[in-house]
Design a protein around this nucleic acid. Structure first.
Lengths: 238, 238
DNA sequence: TAGTGGTCTAGACCACGGT
DNA sequence: CCGTGGTCTAGACCACTAG
């Protein structure tokens, strides 16, 4: 089940496989997944590796563990829970949904002497021929890092896939700040908001690559359709 | 340095000690903390334990690791970054700041046949004799779980300390949903908002205890003074 | 080359849940 | 009682950084 010749770490491979089975409903809500010792045999690896994979799922809230009982799929699945700012397309692919992007604006601008591509997109999902837009997303990418980036089409290709494949840049880390924002006409039209909606949630911040270079500034405004959920564990300090 | 007779796990003890040295400025921003092998000798434990403690700091964003170089204190410390809904007092104590609470309302209400204490507080920090309120916090706690809870004073005592000490209930996990909210007069007065502020960030959700019982419903409205920051690592799916 | 963090192994003992 | 997850040990090899 795990490929020891693959360069990706075993615990990542395992994490992805388990994750898939959960979002596909193969492991059902509330049910237990195989125990750690069972998985040691199933995947021919040690408990440390299993537990490292499971800890990723626990952090994500997809699974919770109870000593003496087992590891269970979370009862209430998060809806559109955004814990991952690293690519909308990848995020939806993990959920087996089809991402749609519509370019609203594309230009070059200069800020503090540095030239950037500015790309504004409406992003959503396609379900049974109808498209629902879920967010409006503005990216600023330095021209110096990504020459000729604007020769690509962003309607159909994932931006992060282009960065990975053509520029060998892997987005690895994000620092995001959340705040409310008043609704303007563009948001109201694209996100099809009701008249009594006044403010939306905005995320703003930077994305860094594997070498800790700042590769992108982002600003995302979320439709109220998206539930912005967070799950935390609490460290009692006493 | 670590107490192997203490019931709290070694990696938690280590995590707290390192955390203290960072927030106290003993380990300075941008500087390296002792390497993992050094710490093995310093604390007389194995690398696995060290790494488990460090991973907590990494998740919190207080520290980042670079292969071949070392472990460094984050250059830009988050300001009031709320990743922990498990107690405002504890949170500020970890930052060496003094929490202040002011009870705005306290009553009993019945929802769906279940009786709750409802407690609304303004919460802030005290610095050099002046108090800045940072959030307005409404808690609903079931009377059935916490008889006589309203005999306590919440002005000076931490709610979670009372739950832990008198009811042996440990808040362990939170499920929180974020959304924007329009400002009303109470918010404007207490949080001392400027006239051009229109909307604030609101967090709403449930807190669970060690036995996965829902012990509290919370609603928190945050002052714009608080920066609601999130740091994530990105799992490229390819 | 020496030191760093990233991954992995193969054990061990424990507290807890259900039988 | 056995199986579960929680913690801890004592090694190993690797990729990367820097002098």
């Amino acid at each position: 089940m795990l490929d020891k010749n693959d360069f990706t770490p075993l615990y990542i491979q395992l994490y992805r496989q388990l994750r898939l089975k959960i979002v596909n409903g193969e492991y059902k809500q509330g049910e237990a997944i195989p125990s750690e010792t069972e998985m040691m045999k199933l995947f021919d690896t040690t408990r440390g590796t299993i537990r490292k994979a499971l800890s990723l799922l626990v952090n994500e809230g997809l699974v919770h563990q109870v000593r003496g009982k087992g590891t269970f799929v979370r009862l209430s699945p998060l809806q559109y829970s955004i814990t991952n700012f690293g690519g909308f397309t990848d995020y939806l692919k993990n959920r087996n949904e089809l991402a749609v992007s519509k370019v609203l604006d594309q230009c070059r601008i200069t800020i503090d002497g540095e030239e950037y591509y500015q790309l504004t997109r409406a992003r959503g999902v396609k379900k049974e021929d109808s498209v629902t837009y879920l967010m409006i997303d503005t990216s600023l990418l330095p021209v110096s890092l990504f020459p000729d980036l604007d020769k690509n089409s962003f309607e159909n290709e994932s931006l992060y896939k282009i960065l990975r494949d053509k520029y060998l840049v892997k987005p690895t880390r994000s620092e995001i700040s959340l705040s409310p924002v008043l609704i303007d006409d563009q948001m109201r039209n694209i996100l099809e908001l009701k008249d009594d909606e006044v403010a939306l949630l905005k995320a703003e911040g930077n994305i860094y690559d594997q070498n800790n270079r700042k590769i992108e500034k982002v600003k995302i405004v979320y439709s109220p359709t998206i539930e912005f959920n967070i799950m935390t564990s609490i460290n009692s300090s006493k």
